[in-house]
Simulated assay, not measured.
Amino acid sequence: MAGRSALIFHGTGGSPDVCWYRWLAGRLTARGYAVEVPHHPGLNFEPIATFLPKVLDAHSFDEETVLVGHSGGAALLLAILQHIDVTVAQAILVAGYCTPPNIEQEPVLQPEYDWAAIRSHVRDIYFINSRIDPYGCDDRQGRAMFERLGGTQIVRNDGHFGDHDQPYERFELVDRLIA
């Protein structure tokens, strides 16, 4: 095995340089992880059927991989987990969702999910959502995924956990959840 690795996926319209992504990458790197914070500008703009193969080709996944996704990046993790052929160590979905959270188009969502396949491809899964999220990526979305996949649901009152109008430079909780 190549050792512990982590992939941190930004949200819709985001980049690796917003909110807590680089901070978390630095924390994990200091603990011996090989960390990628890729920029995928097509996330949630390009249909998942054509976008997902590009993501799968661009990254590798193994039993020591930790996946972290925020917002649209968390929704992307569901598709990744469904379509990889290995069981990763951990997935943390921050402000994630599995159904349209608002009236916007959500090309990152699949028409349906193979929940058993998703569950079989991750050993430890967390859902972190807020009670009130400006985009609808709230605790009800987290509950919908938790009920299908198990794992751990964490509900906070922290909005979207980082956005253009919500500075969120550190995310201690996510750092602590990663072994």
Rank of each mutant, 00 (worst) to 15 (best):
R31C: 03
L7K: 15
E106W: 13
I84P: 02
R31P: 03
E147I: 01
R140L: 14
I92T: 09
L67G: 13
P41K: 05
R176I: 07
R22G: 11
A116T: 12
A6Y: 04
P101E: 12
D163G: 13
R170D: 01
F146P: 02
I92F: 05
M145K: 02
L177Y: 05
W23F: 13
F161W: 08
Q166H: 06
L93G: 07
D138C: 11
S130E: 04
I118E: 03
G69Y: 00
R131S: 09
E106H: 14
S60M: 01
P134V: 03
A30E: 15
A79T: 06
N102R: 05
L149F: 09
P111Q: 04
G150C: 09
V18L: 15
D85W: 07
E46V: 15
S60Y: 08
L81V: 06
W20F: 13
Y33L: 00
G11A: 06
K54M: 03
P101H: 12
Y97T: 00
V55E: 02
H40I: 15
L109D: 05
I132T: 13
V86T: 13
A6K: 04
L149E: 02
L52A: 00
L149W: 03
L52I: 14
P41C: 08
G14R: 11
G42D: 15
E169G: 03
L24C: 10
G73L: 04
C137A: 15
P47A: 15
T50E: 13
S15G: 09
P47V: 05
G11T: 08
I8R: 05
I154C: 04
E63A: 15
E36Y: 14
D114Q: 11
G72N: 11
Q82F: 02
G3F: 00
H10L: 13
F161M: 08
R148M: 14
R176W: 05
E106K: 09
Q82K: 07
C98E: 07
W115N: 08
A58G: 14
A25C: 02
I128Q: 10
G72V: 00
I128Y: 00
G42Q: 12
R31Y: 06
T65K: 03
T29A: 07
G72K: 04
P41Y: 07
L81R: 10
A74W: 06
L7C: 10
Q110H: 01
D17C: 09
T99R: 15
G42C: 10
H121W: 01
E147D: 15
D62K: 00
S120M: 13
R119E: 13
D124K: 04
A25R: 01
D133W: 03
P100S: 12
R148F: 06
R119F: 06
I8Y: 00
G151L: 06
D139F: 08
W20V: 09
R156F: 08
R119T: 14
G69D: 02
